[in-house]
Write a protein that binds this DNA or RNA. Structure first.
Lengths: 264, 264
DNA sequence: TCGAATTTGTGCGTATGTATC
DNA sequence: GGATACATACGCACAAATTCG
């Protein structure tokens, strides 16, 4: 019944033993030796703490460390689990991705033997926030078509994206909505071609950051885990931005590949 | 003289006030209002704690939060400083980078009006570790030329890289050492061309992670701060890997840009 | 130059909130 | 709704780094 005792100074271990790092090693060892296998629930912190003769906090911190490394997975109210070594999806980002028909994402998924799907939610005439306006070369508050995507591999979400197009560009045409009309799901390049706009190049800015709580819950990953946030902008052959998107690629689920041709 | 008192339960604030988040907001506010400007040293934790009537730890955690967000910068034994809003270097990663002469990095730096330089340390006949061997398509332990780079913008390190080439490829030629011989510093593509190898494309895999202590000290950034670790491999027109590198790009110092041509 | 004071960083402990079953 | 287990906020002591007399 006695709560974890505050160990007096004199009793302190020489350091290195009974610390959170040694416990982390211990947990890692047991996983490596298949005492616990992927998907298993670990004993509760109280149990592990007692077994290893350390405080609960030491166990907690050790688990936090392994969680941040993707070895374990914590579920509030449920337990700490050995993370499943989910096979990562390879996402190719290069010019070769743009096909005359079909979507780049679906092609990526086919290439790794998975079924690619997505859900989207479009909204027209959304006023452009400052950053988006700057990226699209329009004025802040100008109307846009905003589309939120959730990309799925075999039904499980693996990537998020929010796309912005200037409303004036497609207003009154059949391709106003990215996921409506005859070219639904065909990609920006093909949709723009339909209304006579030739997309000549894309610029992508990948930036590392940590997943927000919302992203984590949407993607089924741990809260602080690492993602690559890609700001992508498509430009027409006139040099005008025609679409920009914020793409969130979780490192635990996706592997990003850029293929760069070399011409001297 | 009395150390921080353990505030008894009954005295606890209703929550929300005096917490680490409110202190973080307070610090942020003072910086926004120019009470402290970039480069300034904040008062010590004890002083801030007393002034805000909270424990030192609350201040410490608030500072840790702002440090992780790049607002503050902690220097052990010295103090906590307001981070200088260092202008980031734009690093373009595309085929256009490869010039017949001159290095890609120097061109990048010229483009942003900075002086590009680097230091390197080559070593021949280093046995290939498993991962490198796999990337180069050779056997583990096969001899390689390893070169460690430190890229500088206006004399300050902004990027790290470790390059590996199969020793057998260049042994006995003038371009064995990347930074020696007549083509020193001309880049992989030009050096390989010299010995009749045509480099046709590169593959880059960017992955987010946190800076190690060593990387942080080399780059002059905070320890856990975010970097993009790029695994780059150059391939010959025969499809054979000729060089692979691990490139560490700190988010605080560099902005990565991929330019992708679209051809339908 | 060297050691003591100061300041940040790390490891570990306690209390309470909150999600899940 | 209660029990259980993880998550968050807060606290202490000491190590490590720096600074300065």
């Amino acid at each position: 019944m006695r709560p974890e005792a505050h160990r007096p100074k004199v009793e302190r271990r020489p350091s290195r033993f009974g610390t959170q790092l040694s416990i982390a090693d211990e947990l890692r060892r047991r996983i490596a030796e298949h005492e616990w296998t992927p998907g298993d629930r670990l004993p509760s912190r109280a149990q592990i703490a007692q077994e290893c003769a350390v405080g609960e906090n030491v166990v907690r911190r050790a688990q936090e460390l392994l969680i941040s490394q993707g070895v374990l997975e914590g579920r509030a109210g449920s337990g700490t689990y050995v993370a499943e070594p989910r096979q990562r999806v390879r996402v190719v980002r290069s010019s070769a991705r743009e096909q005359p028909e079909g979507s780049p994402f679906r092609a990526d998924m086919r290439a790794v033997g998975r079924q690619g799907d997505w859900e989207s939610r479009s909204e027209a005439k959304v006023p452009a926030p400052a950053e988006i306006a700057a990226r699209l070369g329009i004025a802040e508050g100008d109307p846009c078509v905003r589309t939120a995507y959730e990309f799925l591999a075999d039904g499980r979400p693996v990537q998020l994206s929010t796309s912005w197009e200037p409303y004036d560009l497609t207003a009154g045409t059949l391709v106003v909505l990215p996921e409506g009309g005859p070219l639904a799901g065909a990609g920006v390049v093909n949709r723009m071609a339909e209304i006579g706009i030739i997309v000549s190049h894309a610029v992508e800015q990948p930036e590392p950051r940590q997943a927000t709580a919302e992203e984590a819950s949407l993607l089924g990953i741990q809260k602080g885990s690492l993602v690559t946030h890609i700001r992508r902008t498509y430009y027409s052959d006139q040099g005008q931005p025609v679409e920009t998107a914020d793409i969130v690629v979780p490192a635990a689920l996706c592997e990003i590949v850029y293929e760069i041709p070399i011409t001297r």
